[in-house]
């Protein structure tokens, strides 16, 4: 006798509200209103951490000075994504293929990940490439990482 398996489809839709906190809020407000990146420096190890946070994880002391960072940096790693992964903040898939990478802004210890504005071709992108953050126009910025459109290569065709 053939066995019938029963599977019942269900959907869980979960709204939530994320409290950015004082450090992350200042970072996002500077990005939104002034188009600037800020990190915060640990008074002990000197690492400039971004996004800013209350405590240096390594030294476990309160982070001190706010440091303005350059919008330019270096590509530390990349991928060309072919899998249409869903953007969980919109529920829509990213358009593939696209280039995606981690960038270390000049003066920062930390890295940031974002789209890289190069053709999705491994001949056109390399680790060590110099890049600059390209922001959305002021009126379109809302105070999250999508205020950055992408990072674009500097001085390379």
């Amino acid at each position: 006798m053939e066995i019938e398996f029963v599977n019942i489809p269900m959907v869980v839709d979960v709204p939530y509200r994320f409290a950015a906190g004082s450090y992350m809020a200042r970072f996002l407000i500077e990005l939104r209103d002034n188009g600037k990146f800020f990190g915060i420096q640990c008074p002990s190890c000197g690492r400039v951490q971004m996004p800013p946070r209350i405590v240096c994880a390594a030294c476990h002391i309160k982070n001190g000075e706010w440091i303005e960072l350059s919008p330019t940096g270096t590509l530390m790693g990349f991928s060309i994504v072919h899998l249409p992964l869903t953007d969980p903040t919109t529920g829509l898939p990213h358009k593939t293929p696209y280039t995606y990478g981690i960038v270390r802004l000049d003066g920062a210890y930390s890295t940031i990940e974002h789209f890289i504005d190069v053709e999705p071709d491994i001949q056109k992108v390399r680790v060590g490439m110099r890049v600059r953050a390209i922001l959305r126009p002021r009126e379109e910025r809302t105070g999250d990482l999508n205020d950055i459109l992408h990072f674009a290569p500097i001085g390379e065709a």
Partner: peptide, 30 residues
């Protein structure tokens, strides 16, 4: 995959997260 995206920080990285594939892809390229 959907539940894993909730592992990423809600503001810093979730919308762009390349999931586990993206992370290991960058490790491989590096």
């Amino acid at each position: 995959s959907a539940i894993l995206s909730g592992v990423a920080h809600p503001l810093y990285g979730r919308s762009l997260a390349g999931a586990a594939v993206g992370y290991f892809a960058m490790m491989g390229a590096s």
